[in-house]
Design a protein around this nucleic acid. Sequence first.
DNA 1: TGAGTTAACTCTTATACAGGACCTATGAAT
DNA 2: ATTCATAGGTCCTGTATAAGAGTTAACTCA
Lengths: 243, 243
Amino acid sequence: MTTLTTPGGGPLYLQVRKLLTQRISGGAWPPGHLIPSELRLARELGVSQGTVRKAVDDLVGNNVLVRQQGKGTFVAVHDTRRALFHFFPMVGDDGQRVLPNSRVLSCRRLPAKQSEARALDLPAGARVIRIERTRDLNNRPTIVESIVLPAASFPELGKSRSERLPNTLYELYEERYGITIHRAEEQLRAVAASAKVAKLLGIEPGAPLLEITRLARTLDGTPVELRISRCLTRAHHYQSNFV
Amino acid sequence: MTTLTTPGGGPLYLQVRKLLTQRISGGAWPPGHLIPSELRLARELGVSQGTVRKAVDDLVGNNVLVRQQGKGTFVAVHDTRRALFHFFPMVGDDGQRVLPNSRVLSCRRLPAKQSEARALDLPAGARVIRIERTRDLNNRPTIVESIVLPAASFPELGKSRSERLPNTLYELYEERYGITIHRAEEQLRAVAASAKVAKLLGIEPGAPLLEITRLARTLDGTPVELRISRCLTRAHHYQSNFV
DNA sequence: TGAGTTAACTCTTATACAGGACCTATGAAT
DNA sequence: ATTCATAGGTCCTGTATAAGAGTTAACTCA
């Protein structure tokens, strides 16, 4: 139990924020959980409601918590819409969002390559799960994806041959393994299509593709998924807005 | 003068926020300007300091205002660092930010193409300024850019033949024309290099390039710049972080 | 049984106040 | 002239209070 002291560890509301974050990422408050009311927390922690409010405001701003007036404050959940709209930046050239349709090509457990181990912060040679799949946009194969996960964090996944993998993996991580993806870093490059990828996408080898290398992390910063997507951008594009 | 009424137009702090926004985008408070203290504003508008604070918090979160403890609150300025780090997402593959070196190829005033007029919300055939330039990263030509501006908003720009255009255009817009770029929307695609672009970049035609189509807007949403960048992503990449 | 009302609880907005930290300018002392 | 201390302004943090609005559940009444 962390003690809250006003002169010691910086601003009180930051200490409260940290404490709430720990309870969430530690699993005490799983996604969808109704957290205690501001007043209860204030009494419990021995601070004023305004201080709790400021901490909660912060977490709401970071999509960690969700307020509902009259009901309470909840730990954010990756429903399908959020997973799709928030973590899937490909949209049609007409600006319309399209929901991708996935087809898994393979799903194996095997030792990590060096680069994968480095990115996922794993010991060299640790076992990973590698999922290869294609995704259709508007019924046309548009994305070829390679997804790498630490095998230790996802027991059972991909062991049974006939397992159905859902369209939105982030929901699966959250519901089956209690792992919530909270943020991600993406690196974008233009690359030439390899023969294999070209065949899957029905295009000529060497055609330009948008390559997205994404490292997804949980709330506490642990990397949990390395994903490389190669996207055909003839009828769709990657949308990025910033202020 | 807008009147602030508590039951009428929604929450008070949003009315305050709107009023502040108007003063900024209207030019009454130019970039770098020290705005009145929270207490003065509160007295002036007939609300409490906390309400002003909430409105200011909002604008600080949107990079419109900048607080400085002990000094006051200022309208945000596009200094070179900010312009570069905030609106230039290309970084080296080692994660290092590099400052680009620009070389202007041409700068002309001419009628807008249909697509340009549409994007910039101009009447068909309105005059625009078109700037073509290349940008070096680490002393290697890496980006070919085409920049289109509404000519009416930028008098004199590009009329004198020998004009030196600075490396960071957004500073020029702000300092010479009082136009502050506040947000931008980007669309990313992978394209094949045209013969012309390939020659400028010293690569073979058909090589994959990252094409970024950016529409930049002021605080009040007016589009002011359409920019198409074609980037070589062999030693650099486009970095996109999201939560 | 069923519908409508009420009560209790939540977040939301707004106000007021106070001590701390930070910055600047003024003035005093050297 | 330079250095130093001080005063007053600013934002920062924290507390306390209160009326409003949305939700839920229990309760009343027909």
